[in-house]
Amino acid sequence: MGDRFQAIVDVQASAQEAGTLAADVRSWLIASGVVSAERTDCVLSADLGYPSGPGADAVVGLSGWSVPWQGGLDITIGRTVFDAGQGDPMAVTCPHCSATIDLLDEDFELSDEAWEPFREVVHGWGEGRDVIVPCPACGRPVEPTFWKWADDYFVFAHLGFMFWNWPPLRPEFVAEFTRHLADHRTVLLEGKL
């Protein structure tokens, strides 16, 4: 069955402002009852997280979910590669020329040749390095955070909110969440482990 997650990732938060934004959003979520203030063992990505609170049902779609349900929130601050969990990245698109590079071969396996330059981009970001590679189509160099991954398989950021085993977050909640992140551009990443 596995564990599912939804991550609201702030792709514009700088390393310097991520902590302040996280604290502001955490306070808002606790005050509105979406999560409880006392941290427990309720997430997979950290030792402790914030369990869903009494107001959580108001921000999710419960169709098909047994009630009551229980989930947790992990707030990740710091340079992180957020990914979709299972499977492999299928493709990546250049922000300059819009060329899409397929990363899977005819057997739907990760192609070593196509994946090789991007492996360093992903691992480099996680290790604190900005690996800049040229687009295979147009040759222009691309910053790690500018590549567009199919289905947002990878998101590089300094701030993310991982909702573990929650029903689908309502779009209006995600929009309000974004407003609390200074209207930064966010990505809603969904995955399963």
Rank of each mutant, 00 (worst) to 15 (best):
G53D: 01
T80N: 10
W166P: 09
I77V: 14
P141M: 09
E172A: 08
V9K: 02
S14K: 06
M162V: 11
A58R: 05
C138K: 13
A137Y: 12
V34A: 01
M1W: 14
G55W: 02
R79K: 09
A31M: 06
V122G: 10
A7D: 08
L73P: 15
F146T: 14
F173H: 07
E109W: 03
L44G: 15
A157D: 01
L169N: 03
W164D: 07
V60T: 06
D10S: 04
P136A: 13
D10H: 02
P144K: 10
D102S: 14
L48W: 06
D57S: 02
L29C: 11
V11Y: 10
V122W: 11
L169H: 02
V59L: 01
E116W: 12
D151C: 09
H184G: 00
P54L: 04
A182G: 00
G49F: 00
Y153C: 05
G87Q: 09
K192S: 06
L169T: 02
G78Y: 10
P51F: 04
T145V: 12
L62M: 01
Q12P: 09
A22F: 01
I101C: 11
S27C: 14
V121H: 14
M90G: 14
L104R: 08
V34K: 01
V174Q: 03
Q86R: 14
R140A: 08
V35T: 00
T20Y: 08
Q6C: 00
A7I: 07
E176Q: 14
V155S: 10
P134K: 13
V133R: 13
R170C: 00
F173M: 04
E38H: 08
S32E: 11
F146N: 14
T186L: 03
L181F: 05
I101M: 13
D83N: 15
E143K: 10
D112H: 03
G126M: 12
N165D: 06
P144R: 08
E113D: 12
D183S: 06
D151G: 08
P167Y: 03
R79A: 04
A22C: 01
P171E: 00
V133A: 05
D151Y: 12
S27N: 15
E17Y: 02
A58T: 06
L159V: 03
A84V: 05
T100R: 11
